[in-house]
């Protein structure tokens, strides 16, 4: 009887905790982005067209007016220079002169830079802000979509491992 009562007493708490863990698990699960493993959307921008992109490579949406983009810029340069990774830039709603000055002042990690003046490519690639970064494989499919600023933990944790999986080596 006492045993039975103990169970009844903790049952609500147990159910509550189970609910919390289930919901937390669902919420913390990385959002399934539907463009993964799909061919990259067509690109016909001034300065960058889809056929210019040779994977494995990164496609990075940025803008000179975007502060987080400045924050990740050093790391993009390291990736391009030290890790020898091809990065293609797409400037989102940015004035030509501003983009040019930005890349002149901070250095240019991009193989090529396209200009998405009207934000069409931005929507076609499923972006909601800048910066966002994609990993493109040899066949031109999207392998990874990272929304938001790139931190060192993202570079080491997902970007480089995904690129390595696609046959990019760290050596120069």
């Amino acid at each position: 009887m006492t045993m039975n009562k103990n169970i009844t007493n903790i049952l609500p708490l147990a159910v509550f905790l189970a609910l919390i863990f289930t919901l937390a698990g669902l919420l913390l699960r990385p959002e399934s982005v539907q463009m993964i493993s799909k061919p990259m959307p067509p690109l016909a921008l001034e300065g960058l067209r889809a056929e210019d992109i040779h994977g494995p490579a990164l496609v990075n949406f940025f803008a000179s007016w975007c502060t987080p983009c400045r924050a990740e810029h050093e790391m993009l340069k390291t990736l391009a220079e030290k890790n020898n990774i091809r990065i293609y830039g797409i400037a989102y709603k940015d004035k030509r002169a501003d983009t040019e000055k930005y890349l002149r002042d901070l250095g240019n990690p991009y193989e090529k830079t396209g200009h998405d003046d009207n934000g069409k490519a931005f929507i076609d690639w499923g972006l909601s802000g800048v910066p966002e970064t994609f990993v493109i494989d040899r066949e031109g499919n999207i392998r990874l979509h990272h929304a938001g600023v790139l931190l060192e933990e993202h570079i080491d944790g997902i970007i480089l491992p995904t690129l390595n999986e696609l046959g990019m080596t760290d050596e120069k």
């Binding site: 399934s32 982005v33 539907q34 463009m35 799909k38 929507i123 076609d124 909601s128």
Partner: peptide
């Protein structure tokens, strides 16, 4: 839109 931004 769903293909690009998900069900959300």
């Amino acid at each position: 839109l769903r293909l690009r931004y998900g069900d959300a």
